[in-house]
């Protein structure tokens, strides 16, 4: 069957014959490999996307269930060549090592700041609790996000 939805502001269609995930369709059919495929069970958060405005794991969304929906991936977080403040802060704080978890953390953090421009450190930690990083120990990531909150206070 053909599934139609909107990704990062553009209408797309995908041909789906099995119950594959939205993540597979984004990566394999729509040339959007920013969302990473790792655990495929919602544990690691590296495939985080916004589905109709809600932060979810794309690996746990059946692609057919995206029909008629609006999806925002990490590729849609920067706007017209301008990095999102979260991306700038993570770059400046050295919050990226291997980079595999980074797209998921950028999406989760962008979602946090959309809902609350000045989160506390605890709120920041809770917002990225579903995103596993095995390099940084989270220190630089949390400091980067604290700096975004600090600039807005």
């Amino acid at each position: 069957m053909i599934v139609s939805f909107i990704v990062n502001g553009e209408g797309v269609t995908a041909r789906v014959t099995t119950p594959v995930s939205l993540l597979d369709v984004l990566r394999d059919q729509l040339e959007l490999p920013g969302s990473k495929s790792a655990c495929e069970q919602g544990e690691c958060g590296s495939c985080s996307v916004l589905l109709d405005g809600a932060l979810v794991c794309a690996c746990l969304v059946m692609a057919v269930d995206a029909e008629g929906s609006t999806v925002r991936t990490v590729e849609g977080i920067a706007s017209e060549g301008t990095l999102h403040p979260v991306q700038v802060a993570m770059h400046e704080a050295g919050a990226v090592q291997c980079g595999f978890c980074t797209p998921g953390i950028v999406v989760a953090a962008a979602d946090l700041f959309d809902r609350d421009p000045t989160p506390t450190t605890d709120q920041i930690k809770e917002a990225v609790a579903g995103n596993i990083c095995r390099c940084t120990g989270y220190g630089a990531i949390v400091r980067a996000l604290e700096s975004v909150a600090g600039e807005r206070r």
Binding site: P19, C59, V61, M62
Partner: peptide
């Protein structure tokens, strides 16, 4: 199929392959 957080884990690991889904 509701949130998919249980079903899709089974699908992704090849334990289930529903061919008729009610979303």
């Amino acid at each position: 199929l509701a949130g998919g957080t249980d079903l899709m884990v089974e699908v992704n690991f090849g334990h289930r392959r529903p061919d008729h889904v009610v979303a």
